[in-house]
Amino acid sequence: MLQEIFALEFMRNALLAALLSSIACGIIGTYVVVKKIGFISGGIAHTAFGGIGLGYYLGVNPLLGVIPFSLAAALAIGMLSKKAKVAEDTAIGTLWAVGMAVGVICIGLKPGYAPDLFSYLFGNILTVPSSDLWMIMLLDLLIISVVWLLSKEFLAISFDEEYAAVSGLKTTALYLLMLCLIALTVVVMVRVVGIVMVIALLTIPAAIARMLSRSLLGMMIQSVVFSALFSVCGLWLSFLFDVASGATIILVAGFAFLLAQVWRLVSVFLRAR
């Protein structure tokens, strides 16, 4: 069975994509969860769809089109969430929908049928070309280096932004940089689970890891492991039952989240007795 899977090049690529994307996902997902910016991250992901549409319309690799677009979305949403006079969720919700709308219009303008539109929305890890694997790896390296260099600053703004500001940190700039890293992670995840479901894989592994860890680094390592576990399990199950891979990965993660919550409740109950 396993040999059969590995004999197929697309399965090898899929497995590599799942493992490589888990690195970015686990590290950045940790910040998303502890800083409670899930909704903001969802906004960045969905706004980025405009970039995919634009890339498709201009005839470049949509993954390349999505990088500048999602970075712009991250900066815009970050600025809005810090400075806007309108309510933050309204501002993000607006950008969220506008980004999607731009994507839909761009794809509609291009003559002919867009066969892989669906795969950007819901992921199709089985069609990852080798060139995308290199890009995912580069983005992983970039994310790891920035997080390593700025670990104490990111810890400070995640824990207590006001204290970070009092300590002389440029908190707004750091926050925007963090959102940009989230945007890049979204780019990495698009192939695996697609834009619509990115947010689940960004938050679920980290949320489970948080229950078990005493430090941010520990939480990151655990979320990477969980994320890889869910992706590989989902991939295997989708191969077994011949169903959509991205959706299966999300279902595996969701089920694990449910189990973790039940386990937490049971352990609280047992300790109380």
Binding site: V34, L155, F159, D160, E162, R210, R214, S215, L216, G218
Partner: peptide
């Protein structure tokens, strides 16, 4: 004013 569940 901060999250006591924070892993630190």
């Amino acid at each position: 004013f901060f999250d006591r569940e924070f892993p630190i």
